[in-house]
Amino acid sequence: MTSPFKVLIALALSLAVSVAHATPRACEDPNPLRFSLIPRTDLAKQLEEHRPLLQHLERALGRKVSVVQASSYSTVIEGLLAGTIDLASMGPASYSIAKNRDPSITAFVSWTMQPGTFVEDGARFYNSLLITRRDSGLDSVAKLQGRNLSLTDPASTSGAVIPRAEFSAQVGVPLQDYFGQVTFSGSHDRSVEVLRKGYVDAAFVASEHLDEVIRQGRIKASEIQVLWKSRPIPHDPFVFRGKLCPDLQDKIRRAFLSESPEIKKMLTNRKAQRFIPVSDEDYKALRGILAQPQ
């Protein structure tokens, strides 16, 4: 394995990195490649799900892939913008926020999810759902006035951005005026959890995440009811920095779209069906929402 050729390549690459550091204008070919993902559930679990993907990437890209732990969506955004994260799994909104600040950031793939209670088979979209516990008796949006609401992360598409824009527009007042306490739980998992525990009366969550929580048995579909459903939202994109060398970008793109078993494994882990190529066009609508004044 330690052939002189490979050693040469490695030397050349390290040289390239140091050159890249020395001259910021040139394209970047980072080694290791720094990967991060927005918090969805606990980090260890998320990493475990993505490990086949990372393994596949390491092999396909011929370099190590390190993982940057994100405290929030913001960590990923700032990391991409600061150049400390090269590749990331993001939400449509967080992608759009980053894209607004650095147009070179590119969404290149997304996926279709396996069908579930709330996600349609093969759909390229999901929804933000306003849910309550069925036993709470809160069976209409009107009844939720003054009630406590759980959002996810300020940068979460279905857990904060869409509700704050679309739902607010619908009810005519900002969320914090319509509801009582409005709290950010940090993740979809946690939003469902605090709803289940009764800490809050309602929560906005992503339909695909709700499906997952149901699949895991942490709540039954019969225990909750959906009072509101957003317009379709495109699925989460994988993005990379625009400063990455085009060759690397290409390799990454191809690695995702390959039919390798690791990719399949990872998709299965994530209850996804397959990767599909996307472009920035797919998320433009959201960028419009985010550009609106609050």
Partner: peptide, 27 residues
Amino acid sequence: LAGDRAYNRMVIHDPQGKQLYASSPAT
């Protein structure tokens, strides 16, 4: 900054408030 889970952005201003350095672009 990359290894810090608490701070995710830093900006340096000169004594007049002019931005000299930012870890990420922002308005």
